[in-house]
């Protein structure tokens, strides 16, 4: 069965840029580069590397432009896929890639004191919790939460099924909840009570 055509809001720019239109190419760069930058920075946590990855993803886009088939995939999804894979490659080369089966099981911190940390301490804790996730779980969280991609699109980016995305997200969220419980136990509890009321 053939895949249905995919609507791509950037299809017009892609077609023009494919014909060598510099203005369209510049508009395309302006439209997509901030998203690629955000994803690559959140996965790599290194501005220089995130810049390299963003540029490399755009260069790869120029290479596929002449043969790009409108309607087969959204260019943003394709770029997210390229960016994520480039980030994973860099993490692997640097020995920083953490696969899920290598990640230590998050420990349940138990009952936590009802304390609110200072804003910067909370930020550090959230950053550390995100950094401690296996990379594919972190990518799923980043793409879903920060980039607001649908599970189907995250599945296309990571090359997995929607069910596998849900599984990654569930494990990632569980690990984050456990890691962040000391700081946010009161917030989580308040949220649950608020919804139960």
């Amino acid at each position: 069965m053939s895949n249905p055509l995919v609507f791509d809001p950037l299809a017009g720019l892609i077609a023009k840029a494919g014909r060598g239109d510099r203005a369209a190419a510049a508009d395309l760069v302006k439209a997509v580069s901030p998203k690629l930058w955000r994803v690559s920075w959140r996965l790599l946590r290194d501005a220089a590397e995130a810049e390299d990855v963003t540029q490399e993803a755009l260069i790869r886009l120029w290479k596929v432009l002449p043969t790009w088939q409108t309607g087969r995939a959204r260019v943003e999804t394709w770029l997210h896929q390229v960016t994520t894979n480039l980030c994973f490659d860099r993490l692997r080369k640097a020995g920083r890639f953490v696969d899920e089966d290598q990640a230590p099981e998050p420990l349940d911190p138990g009952p936590m004191p009802d304390t609110r940390l200072h804003q910067s301490a909370l930020r550090d804790s959230v950053d550390a919790a995100l950094a401690s996730l296996p990379d594919r779980q972190r990518a799923a969280i980043v793409l879903t939460h920060y980039e607001e991609l649908a599970a189907k699109d995250v599945g296309e980016v990571l090359g997995i099924s929607v069910d596998a995305v849900e599984s990654l997200l569930a494990r990632g969220r569980r690990a984050l909840r456990l890691a962040l419980a000391p700081e946010k136990a009161d917030l989580l509890q308040a949220s649950v009570e608020g919804h139960a009321a």
């Binding site: 959230v126 969220r173 984050l176 946010k184 917030l187 949220s191 649950v192």
Partner: peptide, 10 residues
């Protein structure tokens, strides 16, 4: 609700 709360934390 737990995930919505987690989203707030993130």
């Amino acid at each position: 609700p737990l995930n919505k709360a987690l989203a707030d934390v993130l």
